[in-house]
Amino acid sequence: MTSPHSLPTLKRVAVCGGTHGNEMSGIFLAKHWVQDPSELQRDTFHATPFLGNPHAIEKGVRYIERDLNRTFSAEFLNLKDSDIGSYEVQRAWEVNQIFGPKGSSQAYDFMFDLHNTTSNMGTCLIVDSEHCLLPMHMCNYIQKHYTRSSCPIYFYQLPGEETYGINSVAKAGIALELGPQPQGVLRADLLAQMRSIMACALDFIDLFNKGMLFPAFEIDAHKVVQRIDYPRYPDGEISAVVHPDLQDKDFLPLKPGDPIFQTVNGEDILYEGADTTYPAFINEAAYYEKKVAFVQTEKRMFSLPALQKNF
């Protein structure tokens, strides 16, 4: 019998809400937990809540000058004080100093990052890649114990791409992406779901710290292949919108020849890929500026070894 993979006990855990200042479920919960952190306490640890982008939260916007959740790469974290220009770069530096430094032995053991999307992503669990053993075991635990809805797993990291999200300053992390929810709006159903998933995830850490053996398993996950832009006119303006047959079909199969865009004159533009894909973040409001109409993913089965804490 193969010995389980072992990792140290998780003692320092952080929970971030408001990395984007108009995604309200995480903001609401983080503000509540800052005032009353009792829900974040377990026998073996207590989690520290914080607000990711306070100025953006005050203004009710995604960010002030640049997307904070794209600012935790070496390009920005290694800047000297005199070179830090935008507010979000300064904030990334501060978060990295408090909860990191990224890649160091002093970094927090785990960080949760709470998000909403305008896309029909449901209760999505976002992990860097399939190589993140602890987060993947957490996802497996959540899928088995949170039964109110399916919880698809989404790997956002492309091959060779550096991690750049806020939870990458910790040794391990996961983002919750719940939708659809309009920007700047709270929905009670999604708020309750986020709260329940967080409770389930914290229970997993507590059980891990107490020495529970988590057996090997296989699991489906969606791995990013590429990010698809809207059709555009020569001047760069969008020339077609997401097709009605694709809208709200996040994580459902998209086959070659299926319509993906529709022009103002009603002309359908078809998916020309050779293989079935599984779109995500379809028609996400915040991705218009990033020139992303949807993210093309492949759905694959991944095998993970058993896990237990070091003794």
Rank of each mutant, 00 (worst) to 15 (best):
209 N>K: 03
304 L>N: 06
140 N>M: 02
112 F>S: 10
29 L>G: 03
251 F>V: 07
280 A>H: 01
288 Y>V: 14
36 D>V: 01
60 G>K: 02
34 V>Q: 11
283 N>W: 00
211 G>D: 06
192 A>D: 15
94 E>D: 12
138 M>P: 05
109 D>Y: 05
238 I>C: 02
286 A>H: 07
222 H>S: 03
214 F>A: 00
247 Q>F: 07
166 I>V: 15
233 Y>R: 12
300 R>Y: 13
218 E>C: 10
197 I>T: 04
144 K>V: 08
27 I>M: 03
35 Q>Y: 01
39 E>P: 15
264 V>R: 14
305 P>M: 00
94 E>C: 07
233 Y>P: 03
89 V>W: 05
269 I>N: 08
108 Y>D: 13
22 N>L: 02
304 L>S: 11
89 V>K: 04
164 Y>M: 10
112 F>H: 07
73 S>Q: 09
11 K>I: 07
113 D>K: 01
48 T>I: 09
192 A>E: 15
10 L>I: 14
188 A>D: 15
105 S>W: 12
64 I>K: 02
176 L>E: 00
227 R>P: 07
83 D>F: 03
110 F>W: 11
137 H>E: 06
143 Q>G: 09
219 I>T: 14
43 D>R: 11
55 H>K: 13
43 D>M: 09
13 V>D: 05
62 R>I: 01
128 D>A: 15
158 L>G: 13
282 I>E: 00
57 I>L: 03
112 F>A: 12
181 Q>I: 04
37 P>E: 10
79 L>K: 09
231 P>A: 01
80 K>D: 14
26 G>W: 04
221 A>Y: 07
309 K>V: 07
95 V>C: 11
126 I>F: 06
214 F>T: 00
262 Q>E: 12
251 F>M: 05
180 P>F: 00
170 A>G: 06
223 K>R: 14
188 A>E: 15
269 I>P: 07
17 G>Y: 00
44 T>A: 09
229 D>L: 06
92 A>G: 06
220 D>H: 13
289 E>A: 12
81 D>A: 11
64 I>S: 01
160 G>P: 09
104 S>R: 07
267 E>M: 10
97 Q>T: 09
174 I>M: 11
299 K>L: 07
43 D>P: 08
24 M>Q: 11
154 Y>A: 01
173 G>V: 06
158 L>Q: 15
129 S>C: 08
180 P>C: 05
101 P>A: 03
77 L>D: 12
171 K>S: 14
39 E>C: 12
308 Q>Y: 01
225 V>D: 12
168 S>F: 03
243 H>F: 03
77 L>E: 09
265 N>Q: 14
93 W>H: 15
90 Q>K: 12
149 S>W: 12
68 L>V: 03
167 N>L: 09
165 G>Q: 15
